[in-house]
Every structure is written in C-alpha cells, then in structure tokens.
Design a protein around this nucleic acid. Structure first.
Lengths: 132, 132
DNA sequence: TTGACCCTACGAAACTCTTCGTATTATCGT
DNA sequence: ACGATAATACGAAGAGTTTCGTAGGGTCAA
C-alpha cells in the first residue's frame, strides 16, 4: 500500500500525454490517438488504463458503457515529479548540471536559448509562475 | 541483440555513479560505498555488475582474484542520454519546458540561477564546451 | 594440511511491465 | 427477440529487474 502518487512507466506516460492533450477519453479514443505514432492493441491500452486506475494515475467514469478515463493529476505536477526525479537521480539535484547536459545533447536554436533566458529572468525576479 | 548502449535501470545507475566517483572498483568497494546510503547485499551488487557487464555498461578486469569493474562509457555520455531521454519522453524535446518544471519543482538559489545564465551565455556564444 | 575467510558463479523467487487471447456483457438495428 | 458489433473483465505468458541462498574454489595463517 503506497500513499505517494506512483511514478508512471514509459507506456503509461504515453497514455497520460494523450489524456492531457485530449481531455477525458474512452479507451478507443486513446487507442486511436496512440496508434498514430505506435502500434498497440485495444486490450493492451485497456489493461494499462485499468492498472493506472488502481495506481490512481487516472480516474474512471463508468456511467456510460464506454468508460471515460481522465488523468488524476495535472500535467504540470507529473512533469515536475519526473523532472525532479531525474534531477536527483542523475544530477544530484544540480539544475546547472542537468541544463549543461541537455544543451550538450542536441542543437538548440537561438530562439530556445532566448526563451530559456526569459524563464530565468522571470524566475529570479517575481519568484515563480505556474507552468502549463 | 542490441547494439545501442543500453539504458541503465535505477539501481544500475546508482552503481555507475559509484564507479564514476571512485574509478575502477571491486564488488566490495562498490558495496561499501553503496551501503553508506542504502542497504544491499554483496551478491546483489555482484549480480547487478554481472548483468551490467553483459549489457556492456561496465567492463571487467579479471586479472586479480577480486575482479575490478569500471564504467564503459564516460559519465557525461550517459548523463546526456538520460537527460535527452526525459527531454523527449515528457517534454517533447522542449528544453524550456523542462527548465520551467525543474525550477518550479524546488527552490533555486540565486547562485544557481547565475550559474545557469552563465551556461546559456557560453552556449550561445562559443558553441558548446564539454560538461564533466 | 586444515580451517577460516573471501570471492565468483549460478539459479531460484518475487515482482513489475507489457501484450494477447478469450470470455462475458451491453447496445442497437432489423 | 436475434444477431452483429463493441466494450469490459480476466488471466496467462514473456521479458526484465532485483534480491537471496548456496555452492565451488582460491588464499593465507597457524
């Protein structure tokens, strides 16, 4: 019995992203959206959603025959959790280290650098604003 | 048969971090270092190192009776891989998004903000320097 | 040489993740 | 009411992760 919100696995995250993007959806809707990018069977998605329900990653509305699922937690909260997890596990909590390796790993456009600078500015001055 | 360097699991990463910090080490050395933070048995560490050897995450020197293990890949490369992985999987490749959620997830000192700004500067101007 | 000790090797067990196949049930048109 | 369709429920299988217990062999001191 765990009371802390569970961390989604890789496939679960894909499903969560669909739910975040589309809002409450049926299994078939999630499946169709998922199949635009990767192959997966109906019962596979269903099973995952059932497991995610027991983990309270998603909530299920059974009023209609085709149950409607929605994410329990806002996208921002889960993203923060996942980002914080990597931050701790691989970078010992150092945001600079994380940033350095992210930038080293890919080409970054001048626009994105500017965007990053803007984020730092707004964070340094007025505390923090809510992402997402 | 996979030719791409495998992604380490959570426990494997802990072991890799010991090897990065201490350099080539025996099972017992890794165990002692690990047990400062978390409980784990000798054969547990050994088994993990054996698995990591087959994954070519580590290399083994069998010349001495107590085999000596060392990481196959430099820390920077693995860190970049893990950072890039999260970047793609949860932030769709947007470094700004990632940064925003990292900053939102914890209090960040003024010093660290400055450090981040410096990283952006050096990245925008002279391309990139090697982390680690 | 014998015994204590340390190291590796091996395999089993418990657990999680993911996918499938099949059974059961509800809905709707005719 | 009947049959086709579509949804959920259930369970099993396969892979991977992690932990343990035990066995086998080398090393060294007394």
């Amino acid at each position: 019995m765990k009371r802390t919100p569970q961390k989604p696995t890789a496939t679960e995250l894909e499903i969560l992203r669909v739910l975040w993007a589309k809002g409450p959806s049926t299994v078939r809707e999630v499946l169709d959206c998922l199949n635009e990018k990767r192959a997966m069977g109906y019962t596979g998605v269903l099973k995952l959603l059932q497991i995610m329900t027991t983990k309270t990653l998603v909530r299920r509305d059974e009023r209609e025959r085709a149950h409607v699922y929605q994410a329990c937690r806002p996208a921002a909260q889960t993203k923060r959790q996942l980002a914080g997890d990597v931050l701790q596990r691989v970078f010992e909590g150092s945001a600079s280290q994380l940033m350095m390796h992210v930038l080293a790993g890919r080409r970054t456009s001048r626009g994105e650098i500017e965007e990053l600078r803007r984020i730092l500015d707004s964070h340094g001055e007025k505390g923090n604003d809510k992402p997402d």
